[in-house]
Design a binder for these strands. Structure first.
Length: 301
DNA sequence: CTCCAGGCGCCTT
DNA sequence: AAGGCGCATGGA
């Protein structure tokens, strides 16, 4: 047998990249830690990622690729995180967050998968979101090739596929009252009444308004998609954790009204506000002591 | 057993 | 404009 023409493995040299925290902090929901590494599906392809040493990220796929830019883009391996964090406002809270969460990155996800996942996220814990997303993929996603001995996996279902479902079918994925929201959003995407690719060319506020026009999408979920999928650098999702962080760290004396708090985050954090948000979010969660990823056995769920 | 979770939509003031 | 409430489901 001869070697494949194109490689099944690829490696990047990285600096200040913490793969584990990046994949497990609730920006993407399909990564699972197995004894062999982090397994997930990116752009319809199965991937296993490991970080054998701090300055290397190793990728393994089930089929060969002649170009790996799709994965380099997803992982944002070319971002110099020190340049990013140096543009944060110089305050002790952010400095502490950067110190505590060194190597945390933002991914660059598929817009539909990101949008649909965060529509499912409201009043759910991250573990539950992961379970619902996985169920959705198993029931509606196309099977993807995996390497021998690994459990079968499915792509994230397309908007077109979700749009064909009944609300009842979606509720069987345990998404509860979010089912009509997901279905409505999928139909808007499937019938082209919203153009997710077209949002890349819009200014932030217009893209935000487009997303908010979808059912089940408010300011917070829109900002998540703008940051995690489109890479708008100043999108700043304000969820309960961030709200608590801003309140405690920046308004310790008095209770900040929602309007004032929104104005603060829109002006204070500067050109890399999105990264600042991610550092504060993760910092709050690790100091509150919850989100430690656990090894998942490499067979039945 | 209760409580609450990376919110949103709708209904009151 | 701003605040309260219900919504499914299942961890903690």
């Amino acid at each position: 047998m001869s070697d494949p023409v194109y490689p099944l493995k690829w490696v990047w040299a990285v600096k200040n990249y913490d793969l584990a925290s990046t994949l497990s902090t609730g920006q993407a929901f399909r990564w699972r830690l197995t004894p062999g590494g982090w397994e997930g599906v990116v752009r319809g392809s199965w991937v296993r990622l490991t970080q054998p040493q701090p300055d290397l990220i190793l990728a393994e796929t089930a089929r060969p690729f002649d170009s790996w830019t799709w994965l380099a883009d997803y992982l944002q391996v070319d971002v110099d995180i020190d340049v990013v964090t140096r543009r944060f406002p110089a305050d002790k809270h952010l400095a502490q967050a950067v110190e505590t969460c060194r190597g945390l990155r933002l991914l660059r996800q598929d817009p539909w998968e990101c949008l649909a996942s965060f529509i499912l996220s409201s009043t759910k814990q991250i573990v539950q979101i992961q379970q619902c997303v996985e169920l959705l993929c198993q029931r509606l996603g196309e099977p993807v090739g995996v390497t021998a001995g690994n459990r079968p996996m499915h792509a994230f279902p397309t908007a077109q596929r979700v749009a064909l479902c009944t609300e009842h079918e979606l509720r069987e994925c345990k998404i509860g009252f979010r089912a009509p929201y997901l279905l409505g959003a999928a139909r808007r995407v499937a019938d082209s009444s919203i153009d997710l690719e077209g949002l890349r060319k819009l200014p932030l506020d217009l893209a935000c308004n487009e997303l908010i026009s979808l059912p089940g999408v408010g300011r917070k979920i829109a900002d998540c998609v703008l940051l995690f999928a489109y890479g708008f650098p100043t999108a700043f999702p304000v969820d309960v954790w961030i709200h608590k962080a801003i309140q405690q760290l920046y308004f310790p004396k008095r209770r900040a009204q929602a309007k004032r708090l929104q104005r603060f985050v829109d002006t204070y954090f500067g050109p890399e506000a999105g990264y600042a948000q991610q550092y504060l979010f993760h910092y709050m969660r690790v100091t509150a002591g919850r989100s430690l990823p656990t090894v998942h056995p490499n067979h039945e769920t």
